[in-house]
Amino acid sequence: MNQMKMEHVPGKVKGTITLFALSTCGWCAKTKALLHELGVDHYYVFVDLLPPEELEEAIREVEKFNPHGSFPTLVINNGTRVIIGFKEQEIREALG
């Protein structure tokens, strides 16, 4: 996607799935756990843990898909579908 360092979690491939999250956020943790439970191949990044010089770029990336730049933002196939917040049903339907 860009130079931003993403963690890769291997699993069932359901498209390119990227989770933008915060390490301190409860809803992000639940979203991450749900992706794990579903066993889907995905990438994630804890934006708050990025070095300060990468933060602006990372937030701009999130804002492209979600103008609020809020977390968690789940981007499926480069923005074909974007799920904002921990929407359990929606995520299960999209990736289950």
Binding site: L22, S23, T24, C25, G26, W27, C28, V47, D48, P52, L55, I59, G69, S70, F71
Partner: peptide, 21 residues
Amino acid sequence: RGLLVNEKRYGYPSCPCRISF
């Protein structure tokens, strides 16, 4: 825990579910 992390990081307990500069 997130609030305390932010307090140590930024000097104030900003919302754990929002990004801060």
